[in-house]
Amino acid sequence: MDQKVLETIKQTVTGNPVVLYMKGTPQFPQCGFSGLAAQVLKACGATDYVAVNVLADVGVYENLKYYANWPTFPQLYIKGELIGGSDIMKEMYEKGELQKLIESAKA
């Protein structure tokens, strides 16, 4: 566990309203689940969110699972709080809950 990386993660997720840690980028996802997460965010109208490519940052790749006790990617954070992976994002989107969260993060 690398405290410096965890501190950087904390600043990223608390300094930006919406942050998606994913494999690849929204335009070029490198994993089906990450691609799904990017699509769900797009469907929610979230355009100016921060997307972090964990494949381009081995420190984040290895330490993010310790930050919020979540071992897989992608991970969505809204206002500094872990929302979940693509499963939970999809389910919340279908219930209309994710859209509300995204709206509240923009305000």
């Binding site: 071992p71 897989t72 939970i88």
Partner: peptide, 18 residues
Amino acid sequence: GMLQQHQLVYKALGDRMH
């Protein structure tokens, strides 16, 4: 909530998950 429920499952799986 859904998140905590999934976290319980991941905790049960431990390092095998990764």
